[in-house]
Design a protein around this nucleic acid. Sequence first.
RNA 1: GGCCCCGUCGUCUAGGGGUUAGGACACGGGCCUUUCAAGCCUGCAACACGGGUUCGAAUCCCGUCGGGGUCACCA
Length: 519
Amino acid sequence: MTVRTRFAPSPTGYLHIGGVRTALFNWLYARQQGGQFILRIDDTDGARNLDEALEPILSGLKWLGIDWDEGPGIGGPHAPYFQSQRAAGHRAAVERLLETGHAYRDFATPAELDEERKQAQAAGLPFLYSRKFAAFTAAEAAPFAAEGRQSVVRLKMPREGSLVIEDSVRGRVECAWEREQDHVIQRADGSCLYHLASVVDDHDLEITHVIRAEEHLSNTPRQAFIAMSLGYALPVYAHLPLVAEPGSRTKLSKRKLAQYLKNPDFKQISEHGTKIAQRIGLAPEADTFNPVIVDFYREVGYLPWAIDNYLALLGWSYDDKTEFFSREELIRCFSLERINSSPASFDPKKLWAVQDHFMHALPIEEKLALMLPMLARAGLVDDPPTAAAVNTVRQVIEASGDRLKVAGDILAYADFFLLDPPPMDEAAVKQRLAKPGARALLQQFAEAIGALPAFEPTALEEALKRVVEQAGVKTGDLVHAVRVAVTGKTVGPGLYDCLQILGRERVLARIDRALPLCG
RNA sequence: GGCCCCGUCGUCUAGGGGUUAGGACACGGGCCUUUCAAGCCUGCAACACGGGUUCGAAUCCCGUCGGGGUCACCA
């Protein structure tokens, strides 16, 4: 039997990091087993702007490399892949459930239900619906319908015994049937509810493994009951541990952003990204642009595989030391058996470290390909960029080394090479230039390098050391002054690399321009 | 509150009867150093608690406590 897994998001307009983890595990398992990964859109409540709400989810998954074998955009033998378009099948299933006595039409009004609930509460008993309409024949029910009462269809759940499922993650889980309510599966208007639809669709799409978050564990009995009543074989269930908030065990939610921002790590990642977003002309709204949502990482220039690799480690491990995997390795190493059962909290710093690792390993030309568009969006290079600009940026990337953690970091490291004159940071000027002696030192340095036969790092360093020695000052005094005079900032690639990339002419011009700022 | 799930360093985790309880991130210190990174060395830090079982329990059993999820005519 071929393994078939699915990810079934509802079109909400954004891809949540927890959802990605679920999608990833489904995808990994299908790939590893040589099976299929299906994407289905659970849009039962007719979303009005479906396309708009769907786009971020589809593009997010694609960006992450989580490709689907059947689903939106590509179709497949089990089309349609939108739950709303499968309503006929859902209704047919309800009819069968009615015929076989696994479900019944319920004419009770909400008030009547409330009344029963109150009585149970008053008696200190758990609520167990009388389901007084369950035994009604069509003839007996007719008066109620004539009276204008609406009816829903409810599951006639077992009230004895229990369901035992062998969860791939949790092992044996037992649930007493008497704890289950007679859940509604179809509304008065004929539309069906999620649990019914989901079970029917999973069966029709021949899903063999239902891998989903733990929050669905308690929904499993009713779903299993529907499946069994319909004569379906139960899928293998695997309930993943929740992705929790940073430093907590509570489910990660996009609604609690303000609270997460109090976490220093989360805040740092968030602010770093926001700064980049602003420079490339995005007007990020905290609601849709934040580290809980995948778009954040894409816009800022994280590597998709870094996100995947990090997320794979959230609730799963291969052994006691392996942390980094290539796509092929992860697919080969993944297994349901090694998924953990306790919640794993989302750690932005660890994600950062994983990102750092993959960015470090990325070949220069690939970095260039990622960073050039960033610079174009920020207006720092033309689109397409000139050959000269590409060359400069390549040199900047080379010189910047591991300082560039995400593609968007190039903005802060390349701007002073591409802008002439560069913006001068006031605090930097105050700290490094507006000091006694700075002017004379800079002038001497300018003279020294003006005559240099070769304008390259080693010669520049020697020249600087000579000036320092003659003036009897510390190396740092001159180095810092030159850096600020020439780049406008206190941080950047190695100074001599910066000077070489800028070239003699611009370096001298910038020093000249900085002299009036000196003390 | 009922039901269900979970409990190893701050975080992600390895280990599932005998280990100096291992790794990674973060954090501290040091080296390197022109800034910021990186790199190297090094340090800090955990089996929730209480009872069993056993020669021996982080590991098996029971209980307690703690945390979480879920209890819709949402998905």
